[in-house]
Amino acid sequence: MSLYRFIVLLPLLFAQPLWAATVTAAVAANFTRPMQALADRFEAETGHQLRLSFGSSGQLFAQIQNGAPFDVFLSADQAKPEALIDAGDALADSRFTYAVGALALWSATPNRIQDGEALLRRGDFNRLAIANPRLAPYGAAAMDVLGRLGLNEPLADHIVQGQNIAQTHQFVATGNADLGLVALSQIIEAGQIASGSAWIIPSDYYHPIRQDAVLLSRAQDNTAALALLAFLRSDTSQALIETYGYHIEVPQ
């Protein structure tokens, strides 16, 4: 190929179909793995381009309030999308629950957890890692579980807190904590507990961990952002999310 022709064709490398647009999504860290899987499908199906920023919901919230260039926010809770709507930074009618988090008692040691509730009551373990209940919805759910079992006081000296659910998982994975109350989505792979042993906490032991998505005001005319939210609601996406260890609610 001549140099001349190469230069003429060069712009094609950066070309996009006319109808394709770009959406930037701020995504809660606990949803990283399913979101990456969903992103590939979304781009393949729609031709739109999806850029992902992962972080803790609190950090992402603060960044959005201070003008971060995000179009869609997938929070780990409901409170932050609500607060953004109240502040006029997000659109009320776009909000829906894209996933409901599930909690599991987990140990990195196989067979360590046979009867999880009895193990917690016996208290024969060194540390129980939970996420910081003030910051992380999974931490608040962990406190619900301990409260329901009446173990808040007895286990107070055993508890260590991760700043988020990722760090809580890390404390258990490295063996520094015998047990941890982690997100089911962190330890499940293809529908199975990937390593160690676990007790999936009955969902009536804690308040549901509803994770809400919302369209941010700056993106109200962004076709790719609207397409992403519709894609997340779809049955196939919801079914995929379920395989990653979340419960789902049929979106209205």
Binding site: S56, G58, Q59, F61, A62, A83, R127, A129, N132, R134, L135, V160, Q161, G162, Q163, Q167, F171
Partner: peptide, 26 residues
């Protein structure tokens, strides 16, 4: 501290971690 502390009051919850907590809790 964040990585090895475990955020235990009077044991490992130092000022910088406390600030981070406040920011994260808005």
């Amino acid at each position: 501290v964040l990585m090895i502390g475990g955020n235990i009051p009077d044991e490992t919850r130092v000022a910088s971690v406390q600030i981070y907590d406040h920011v994260e809790a808005l």
